[in-house]
Design a protein around this nucleic acid. Sequence first.
DNA 1: TATTGTTATACTCTATAACTATA
DNA 2: TATAGTTATAGAGTATAACAATA
Lengths: 157, 157
Amino acid sequence: MQNIQNTLLTETVQLEEILSRLSWVSKRYISCQLNQFQITPPQFATLRCIAQKQNGVSMSDLSDHCQAVMPTMTGIIKRLVSRGLVERKPDPSDRRTTLILLTETGQQLLSEITQLRREYLDQYLLTLTLQERQSTIEILERYLQNMETWLLNQEAA
Amino acid sequence: MQNIQNTLLTETVQLEEILSRLSWVSKRYISCQLNQFQITPPQFATLRCIAQKQNGVSMSDLSDHCQAVMPTMTGIIKRLVSRGLVERKPDPSDRRTTLILLTETGQQLLSEITQLRREYLDQYLLTLTLQERQSTIEILERYLQNMETWLLNQEAA
DNA sequence: TATTGTTATACTCTATAACTATA
DNA sequence: TATAGTTATAGAGTATAACAATA
């Protein structure tokens, strides 16, 4: 009996398992870290996305970058606004567009969270060699781009 | 001014960013792969967990391993039962306990999804060297155990 | 009393469809 | 007509609190 699995790399089965667990466990892990700050993973991803641009991000850009549909973003932003973490500003060049910006409170919260996460991560990274750390960065970055490209293609289709 | 960030490894800032993106993007990626099978990431994680034990898993074990509280599991299992993917069986040794098992349909669906994921992943892994693939497995496995241990400690506290 | 599990409730995230306002 | 964004609605996941049945 010809089994298609025979053609796979020997590491593939193992890594599919690891990456499935990683997706789930890292979500629970981040969720748990965010608990004390009273924000959720989608809100965290959104805050990070907003922080990348100094002059504000439109709802549709946010929607694209966070891979969430517009009505979903509307809800997330509404909650972030009500907590005083972001604010809406009209775009002078197009009156249909609303720009979203971090408030000072939002910036402060985001950097507190990031700092905490860095400290936790640093402890783990100390258990790796320099070479391992650098190769991890390289490989995960490529893997991320791989998934992001795939997701964009799905969207187009 | 003494800045705590100065004490971090140079790779830490970069990896915190990468791991945040990874958590979010891998969730969207898996979610997108699961779409055609009409199941959600928490349902997928649950099915995998059930599949690991031949003789069924209790709700409380599921709740522990999936890191979700019992009422959450009740809901997820309810939907999986209604789709015919899992079934409940009373535990003969303790009448309080319900054992959850995969149905034949559930096993089949799970292996279809896994096969699809392996094929996608395999294509990416071909772009890595053997050494890179093996070191990725080792590093991610250790990172996972790190997070899992941390989560268990949080729960205890 | 302690454990196993469900139900009730409330909130967030999610997508689709319908809508408003602007270009 | 097309684009930017919101509202309405429904379903899934999440946690807390209250409850029933069994140990």
